[in-house]
Design a protein around this nucleic acid. Structure first.
Lengths: 228, 228
DNA sequence: TAATGTATAATTGTATACATAATTATTATA
DNA sequence: TATAATAATTATGTATACAATTATACATTA
């Protein structure tokens, strides 16, 4: 689907830079609104500006960095407005994906899905909150595969990249939210296993909506520091 | 919002090439699956390869052109699968936009919307089918503005670019479809004027769904020629 | 004739050099 | 001291040069 760093073909310099800087932006090593200097990155990585520029342009189009009117680059600032917009769109597209998955999944796919669900429920029961987040991500990714809608999935992956910055800025999910999330995934899986695509879509939309609160809670403290 | 060719700031060479090639792809001057040669374009336009490459990369990310495993570029092939995916996603996002517009529009916005609607209805009555398409586009763009959801709008604009290739490959809308489309816009506007956001969303989703058929009808004849 | 190997040409990937624009530092002046 | 003008510096935008990869043409051989 996407040419990923796991491909066999050796990574071009441009792609290496792309994944490297993207990682630093997502993990907030490069802070929101921090300015970026092509020459500095080039000398740090020991390569020329050409592949840097191409990697930066890709990140710019994906809106992880922005270009000011004077041509200078900086890490995209965070904004509550953007977070809300993303969650609105994401809810619709995750819903679409869940609906399609409920229709298209094979029986063996459903078994795999139930396995993930058992894991996330177990993690929640033991308050392994990181695991809840990780298994949740696995479930979503698995549904992406099943959906067969490349267009929707590509958009979702980009939005997930952008969202993860926000989530990492804030504190972990609370125990309460963690248990809720696991429960929501369990209900969702049940709907999919029942091939109830409409219900799956609605449950997924609700799940995304519920997630927004957790993501937003922590932003206001950071917006003054890193916002635009 | 998007840096467009209408901006005051002089266009960089890169952006000039981007808009130029994008236009040619959208208008099928460059045919689907046709191969693209950086050097040839550079000499035709009388500029170096550097801005060509950056423009091509942007078009590649936006999926108007694709890069083969060997690095060669070609115009993105058309596929029924892609068209269907786009219309599914587009239906959801246009629905979101219509819903938000119904909530956020000022009274003066509503007047403007009704003016557009009168124009499209008049065009349909006179069987000015090109005008119906154009006013339809104006209405959608206007709702984008009103929605206040930059994230959704950016995705929609990209999808519209991709779709327009398909529409231009086929014949014009039939008189029947043209009249239907005008009627759908009229109903939609009424819902928005009534501030009935839920109804607006549903009518818009339906409108997009109905449009798909017209866009798909003509594709099979072309897929063998330009498909992948 | 078909398949394989090799030389050549063409194309893309990256580095470097230069041009242009923006920022910062410096000086001149009120 | 504050401000404006100007020079110096730094960054980005584009062109050119070179390296690495891929495609093509042709010869050789089974």
């Amino acid at each position: 689907m996407d040419s990923s760093p796991m491909d066999n073909r050796r990574l071009s310099t441009k792609d290496f830079v792309y994944y490297e800087i993207k990682k630093q932006v997502i993990e907030n090593v490069l802070k929101p609104s921090q300015s970026i200097n092509e020459i500095k990155i080039a000398s740090e990585l020991g390569i020329s500006r050409t592949p840097i520029r191409e990697a930066m342009q890709r990140l710019e189009i994906e809106e992880l960095i922005i270009r000011l009117p004077n041509g200078r680059l900086k890490v995209a600032p965070i904004s509550i407005q953007e977070a809300k917009e993303i969650y609105e769109v994401r809810g619709l597209l995750e819903g679409l994906v869940a609906r399609e998955a409920a229709i298209r999944a094979t029986d063996s796919d459903l078994q795999k899905l139930q396995m993930f669900t058992n894991l996330i429920v177990e993690a929640a029961e033991n308050d392994w909150r990181d695991d809840v987040v990780n298994y949740g991500g696995e479930i979503h990714s698995f549904l992406y595969q099943l959906s067969g809608n490349y267009t929707a999935v590509k958009i979702l992956k980009n939005m997930n990249d952008k969202i993860s910055r926000y989530r990492r800025l804030g504190p972990k999910d609370s125990t309460t939210r963690s248990k809720e999330a696991a429960h929501e995934h369990k209900q969702l899986t049940e709907a999919i296993v029942e091939r109830n695509s409409g219900k799956a879509e609605e449950l997924m939309k609700l799940h995304v909506k519920n997630s927004l609160g957790a993501a937003l809670d922590s932003i206001p403290n950071y917006i003054s520091e890193y916002g635009e």
